[in-house]
Design a protein around this nucleic acid. Structure first.
Length: 601
RNA sequence: GGGGGCGUGGCGAAGCUGGUUAUCGCGCCGGCCUGUCAAGCCGGAGAUCGCGGGUUCAAUCCCCGUCGCUCCCGCCA
């Protein structure tokens, strides 16, 4: 190319008037008036209007009408002011034009499959197939650039705090815990497989044993589970681990990180310390271990108010060990129709909720389909407990505790959105702490809430030898960081004492041999002078989603996968040659429905 | 594994109590036009209605299956 750019398309202002400049970029829209022709030339820096004027350069003007959308061009010309009243206030460069005197076509373009600059409503399918074109749009580019700024800030922060950035293997070993692994066959060791890491957990703990007392990594992780709007099969964690620390030290480091990120990326100040809430309180007041603290509508437990009730639904719920909880939609009665309330029951159905009850607090007394079943004492106690006043609407769910929490959390969010209380530029951080170390599985056996290396809180360690009920009461030294109702990170102090570790395995029903087989090297490592240590991992993609105000994780990943974990641009996953399979000693069976049972074993 | 939404020229939509020449906007092609900014005006081309089967004299429309995209539950921290 002859005409190499002297400026970008976002750069020119009145300060450069009368300068001769060269721009390179893509043709956006073009407006051909027969005489003068305007073209929006753009690149990732912005848009500059270039003018092909027959009175300025007849030669250049002749070429103008041959240009089409997405052609790649170089132009040399003079920066001129826009005529009086012709400035475009929507454009950073809107006060000037570049009058083209020399022109070079760098490349033509096929007509693009969709309008690159206005692709908002185009089907995801088309946009993902032509991702490189979609990524030519300012929206997507800005988010990708935003992400780059964020990772750069994160690196600087940790390096500045004397952390060591260490890469850990992508080809690892399958672990039985947690999510389904992505497997990679080994050619040299036929019949054996590597697994892609679900997280660098075991490696980073090993690094602590090695003495790298402050480690971090921006690590790609892989989980072969079904996708969601905020979940991709490969995603990025900001992973860190520290030695000789308590959870307070880790929390402090992270709070410092977010203060910096929010200031630099969003110009927003955060008050420290961030609020802390126990798991128990979070579940009780918000129905979720990742509460959205941008709004109120807190949950109130009213089970005890109805302990002697004759109202069938509440009575049987209590008899079965369930609970009754409610939300007071304070002063919102006039904004809610009967339909809004009736829609709640179908709304909670996917969460296995059987129904939602409501009481509307009118000026002339309460109105509700269920109130007639309450005794006077019950009603009075209920209104007092829920601070019910005229103009309020009370919402109830009675069921097993888990279901009540899920339903009320969803209802809480639904109304907050309806009333416009959820602002994407409002940022509510919080730490959720005191998670139970174990939770009961379907058979009532303890399973780790976090992972089996999470340390119990020191004051609860004595309960490890207790009954099953006592075990479920043990709190872990774990902490999640929550932003706007999303868990954006979590971590814990790890067990560094192999005796405690073995005790935990025993509780989980994992035999010594089995533990050695599954986590052998880490258990060994813990016996060679493991320092007390702990850490945390942040979900970078989710953080980027929230800070850039988008609803889909695909908006913050350059080349995302579809919900079926395919890449429409590359065609991955794809078939491979027979020869490749032979080398790996792999044979592929295509299963018929009928044959399925035959080949199962 | 289960439930919901979507699939109609290149793009976005309409048409669906079964019968139309399959409609509109954008884009595309050609023409006109010297101050537009997702310019304007005139003309034109462009569609096996995702795919397969069924019902019917007749299917974009109804039924069954299937594929793809998407949201949710399960799963996953």
């Amino acid at each position: 190319m002859k005409l190499q750019r002297t400026h970008t398309c976002g750069e020119l202002r009145k300060a450069q008037l009368d300068q001769v400049v060269t721009l390179n970029g893509w043709v956006g829209s073009y407006r051909d008036h027969g005489g003068v022709t305007f073209i929006d030339l753009y690149d990732r820096w912005g848009i500059t209007q270039i003018v092909f004027d027959p009175d300025h350069s007849a030669e250049a003007h002749k070429i103008a009408h041959t240009l089409r959308s997405q052609y790649v061009v170089a132009v040399k010309g003079t920066v001129r002011p826009r005529p009086e009243g012709m400035a475009n206030p929507n454009l950073a460069t809107g006060e000037i034009d570049v009058y083209v005197s020399e022109f070079e076509l760098l490349n033509s373009s096929k007509t693009p499959p969709f309008d690159v600059l206005h692709a908002g409503s185009v089907h995801a399918e088309t946009k993902l197939k032509y991702r490189y074109l979609d990524m030519r749009s300012p929206e997507l580019q800005q988010r990708i650039i935003f992400r780059s700024r964020a990772t750069n800030l994160i690196r600087s922060y940790f390096i500045g705090k004397d952390f060591v950035e260490i890469e850990t293997p992508i080809l690892g070993r399958a672990t039985p815990e947690g999510a389904r692994d992505y497997l990679v066959p080994s050619r040299v060791n036929q019949g054996k497989f590597y697994a892609l890491p679900q997280s660098p957990q075991l490696y980073k703990q090993s690094l602590m044993v090695s003495g790298f007392d402050r480690y971090f990594q921006i690590a790609r992780c892989f989980r072969d589970e079904d996708l969601r709007a905020e979940r991709q099969p490969e995603f990025t964690q900001v992973d860190l681990e520290m030695s000789f620390v308590s959870s307070e030290d880790i929390i402090t480091i992270l709070e410092g990180l977010f203060v910096g990120l929010m200031k630099e990326l969003k110009g927003v100040g955060i008050t420290l310390p961030m609020p802390r809430i126990s798991y128990q309180e979070a579940m009780l007041k918000y129905g979720s271990d990742a509460p959205d603290l941008r709004f109120g509508f807190e949950i109130t437990d009213i089970t005890d108010v109805f302990s002697k009730t004759s109202f069938g639904v509440f009575k049987t719920t209590i008899e079965k060990g369930g609970c009754i909880r409610g939300i007071n939609l304070k002063g919102r009665s006039s904004e809610l129709s009967r339909k809004d309330l009736d829609e709640l029951t179908p709304f909670v159905k996917p969460m296995r909720g059987k129904g939602v009850a409501w009481i509307r607090m009118n000026e002339d007394g309460p109105q509700s389909p269920i109130i007639k079943f309450f005794s006077e004492e019950e009603s009075a106690a209920l209104y007092a407990r829920m601070d019910a006043e005229p103009g309020d609407v009370l919402i109830f769910v009675a069921d097993a505790e888990k279901i009540v929490c899920q339903c009320l959390a969803a209802i809480r969010g639904r109304f907050a959105r309806k009333f416009g209380l959820v602002r994407s530029d409002d940022y509510a951080f919080a730490w959720v702490v005191d998670f139970p170390l174990f939770e009961a599985d379907e058979e009532g056996n303890p399973t780790p809430t976090h992972h089996p290396f999470t340390s119990p809180k020191p004051e609860d360690i004595h309960l490890l030898s207790g009954s099953r009920e006592e075990l479920l009461k043990i709190r872990s030294d774990a902490y999640d960081i929550v932003l706007n109702g999303s868990e954006i990170g979590g971590g814990s102090i790890r067990i560094h004492d192999h005796i405690v570790q073995e005790q935990i395995f025993r509780i989980l029903g994992i035999e010594e041999e089995e533990a050695a087989e599954k986590f052998g090297f880490l258990l060994d490592a813990l016996q060679y002078g493991a320092p007390p240590h702990g850490g945390l991992a942040l979900g970078l993609d989710r953080i980027m989603m929230i800070l850039s105000g988008t609803e889909s994780i695909r908006d913050v990943i350059a080349f995302p996968k579809t919900q079926k974990a395919t890449c429409l641009m590359t065609g991955a996953p794809g078939p491979v040659d027979e020869a490749q399979l032979d080398e790996l000693a792999i044979e592929v069976f295509v299963l018929d429905e009928d044959e399925d049972t035959d080949l199962d074993d």
